[in-house]
Design a protein around this nucleic acid. Structure first.
Lengths: 242, 242
DNA sequence: CAAATTTATATGTTTGTACATATAAAATAT
DNA sequence: ATATTTTATATGTACAAACATATAAATTTG
């Protein structure tokens, strides 16, 4: 694998460095606890200053992917790959990582009129239709999650899009939309009739319910997502520092 | 209010600046959307370089407390105060913020022998007792959460401590332990007999279950916390950027 | 008056340089 | 052999100085 930085690219050097680091740390030796090259070396390898490199490393440290220790060097955090970045994996990627094969039970895409709270979040008129995507997914034997997603008209999604591709890849590569910020609300609820039917559980069974508000780089809303997870089928992990 | 930086203090200047900024942005005018002073000015006011100031601002931007815009300046994010720092409020502080008065139904502290998974997390011998704290809390009319906390012997907590004080304040001020990192796992479960009894709900009712692993600055484990929240009594919010 | 252009000003990026500090490892003293 | 001290090496902090870039506001042009 080649690591190189393009000084003529419009992408800031520290961002390029950040991306290279993300790749670098997926390599087996670093996953197994080997220190990554020290800052002075790395900076020289990449042809950037130590300060610029440090901006990149800092970001990964804050995300909890790297751990720095004076004199001991910098290494990949044990059990990385998970943590914060987890939030940003699409469902299928997430499951792949956990070694769970996924079956799609239902995939349904339509145009729908936004409910009141959605018109507020998206800041659109109630008559303006939005694309609604519903999905029922799970293990080969049984579905364990039902999703409903609504996309802002600005995103430019239509029924012609290939919704079998990973969602954030689709948004990024086909529509130039980069999901940057997500706010999520997680709670436990009892299954209502609709959800109980979808997930094939008794009425009132415990369900992990997740609302997800997704924004782009300009903090404009792009997706509103509701996820209903069968109890114990899903554990949400959060890591935070202060 | 005075803003000043002590160049002779062992606390890094960018950390001091960060703290001052946290104070600064609580002021009403900034909460109402007024720009904070521009970087060059601020740096001069504080007597530090722009680079150093920027380290401080960066952190708050990443936390989502500040929003920077070229030419437009830097201002407090609408609806700040919440976000990430939320995770770090103790339960009572959290509820106060939401305007909910809290009643303590039970508070029970004992020494207990650690279960197998706890000996692994704490890295202690099975015979070494740990302090266990149980709490049943909620609204004046009804309890809605049951906590069980276990503390590493290193923390130095004992039955003599005043557990009515906010927990992280107690750890910090009385035992010099600064909780820095927390890893949490959130899932939905059905109430078992014990929990159903505590929270006064039917067996199998939906419960939001949170495991919390808390570490100090050296990433040493200090607390293992289990929280059982009655459905709908609690919403967990997470904000993340990439 | 409205549209296009310029300009001023804020943040954004990058470098080079210097010294501080924690600590693993080596050297030394007990 | 063990305890102590030193040293080398990594990250940590901090500054000054440029130049890049986005954009609100002012200016010019049609």
């Amino acid at each position: 694998m080649r690591y190189s930085i393009d000084h003529k690219s419009p992408v800031p050097l520290h961002v390029q460095a950040e991306n290279l680091l993300r790749q670098l740390i997926t390599e087996e030796e670093y996953q197994n606890g080997k220190n990554i090259p020290n800052e002075v070396e790395l900076a020289e390898m990449l042809g950037i200053s130590r300060t610029t490199l440090r901006m990149a490393i800092n970001k990964l440290v804050i995300e909890g992917l790297l751990i720095r220790k004076k004199r001991a060097g910098t290494k990949v955090a044990p059990g990385a790959v998970s943590s914060k970045s987890n939030n940003w994996l699409s469902f299928s990627q997430e499951m792949k990582l956990r070694g769970i094969p996924i079956k799609n039970f239902e995939l349904h895409v339509t145009w729908a009129l936004p409910e009141p709270n959605l018109t507020i979040f998206f800041n659109i008129r109630p008559e303006e239709p939005v694309l609604k995507m519903e999905r029922l997914r799970g293990k080969p034997e049984e579905p364990f999650v039902y999703f409903a997603s609504y996309f802002h008209p600005r995103v430019g999604l239509s029924l012609d899009d290939d919704f079998k591709r990973p969602l954030y890849e689709l948004l990024e590569q086909e529509h130039g939309i980069i999901a940057t910020l997500s706010k999520e609300e997680i709670s436990a609820i009892g299954a209502d009739e609709f959800i109980a039917g979808k997930l094939q559980v008794p009425l009132g069974s415990p369900i992990l319910f997740r609302k997800r508000f997704v924004y782009d780089q300009q903090e404009r809303p792009i997706e509103y997502n509701l996820g209903y997870y069968k109890a114990d089928s899903f554990i949400y992990t959060v890591e935070s520092t202060r």
